[in-house]
Design a protein around this nucleic acid. Structure first.
Length: 287
DNA sequence: AGAGCTACCTGAAGGC
DNA sequence: TGCCTTCAGGTAGCTC
């Protein structure tokens, strides 16, 4: 489901109920997401207070009062829902309230100043993950290690982007999906940024330098910023944790628009497969 | 080291 | 209606 803008939207939805609140109880429906949850997952969280909720690439990171960090990734189909109020009794009432509890895998019962909330993690495909990094262990965590710069942070410059692309002979589209080049880009925003920059997704990554890399750098920042402002993109059932739908999908210029007219030149948008994934682009506008 | 491929898992949508 | 195939916002882990 989510790329950087969607994860940021989720973060903004969760922060008000998580930060400052305490894990009163952690309910595991199943402990095998993409990976098995780490040892003592529940006991490491219960009783801890959330000091802050941050995002790194497509990961959410809750810093805990214990000094440990809870790391969360939504995979393709992960979703958080916030429910206010006291924990309902299991049974009819609970299941009547939620549409599809079948894939509710982890439930955080939070106790905050203003009352109790349930934060429900639902993930049909179970490509998402949760991990806990020990004190001081966040940077060396297997999921954090080697991740590229934050595209909306100060360390992501056109020169940094060009340097990361310099040694690569494979197509630029695939390089953008490599989280070591820049963090948080997925299939949608890779396609959209390349369109905005007028760069063919088939072009060798190392030939994206100079003015081209500057355009791509700008396009990545612009498209991600605009998507965050729009609350992300809602495909299928993606919604922010408050249930609100993002609307950036209405502004896609190429993604999922095969055969439709390019917004710049009217040529039909093409779809090709690169590294096993759909790429959408305008053959006339992108060189 | 880089690049390509498979695998993980479920559900939706389309063809017949 | 139902069966089958294809596709989906990600990424780890394997080969070459």
């Amino acid at each position: 489901m989510p790329e950087l803008p969607e994860v940021e939207t989720v973060r903004r939805g969760l922060a008000p109920v998580m930060v400052g609140a305490r894990f009163d109880r952690v309910e595991l429906r199943r402990a095998d997401l993409r990976f098995p949850l780490p040892p003592n997952f529940v006991s490491r969280l219960e009783g801890a207070r959330v000091e802050s909720l941050d995002r790194r690439g497509k990961y959410l990171i809750a810093s805990l009062s214990t000094g440990e960090s809870l790391i969360m990734h939504l995979g393709m189909s992960g979703r958080f829902t916030v429910e206010a109020g006291a924990t309902p009794r299991p049974g009819k009432f609970y299941f009547a309230e939620r549409a599809a509890p079948r894939h509710d895998h982890v439930i955080f019962h939070m106790q905050g100043d203003k009352g109790r909330t349930r934060i429900v993690y639902n993930d049909p495909r179970r490509f998402g993950l949760m991990d806990v990094a020990g004190i001081g262990g966040l940077q060396s965590n297997r999921h954090m290690k080697g991740m590229g710069p934050e595209p909306l942070g100060p360390s992501f410059t056109a020169a940094v982007l060009a340097a990361a692309l310099r040694s690569r002979t494979a197509p630029i589209k695939g390089a953008l999906l490599d989280q070591r080049v820049v963090a948080g880009i997925g299939n949608i925003y890779a396609c959209e940024a390349l369109f905005r920059a007028g760069i063919s997704p088939r072009r060798k990554a190392r030939s994206v330098s100079g003015a081209r890399s500057a355009r791509l750098h700008r396009a990545l920042i612009d498209v991600l910023s605009e998507a965050i402002e729009a609350g992300g993109s809602s495909l299928k059932d993606f919604a922010g944790s408050d249930g609100a739908l993002g609307y950036f999908q209405h502004r896609f210029q190429v993604y999922d628009r095969e055969g439709l007219a390019c917004s710049l030149c009217d040529a039909p948008v093409r779809r090709i497969v690169q590294a096993g994934r759909s790429t959408f682009y305008c053959g006339a506008c992108q060189k």
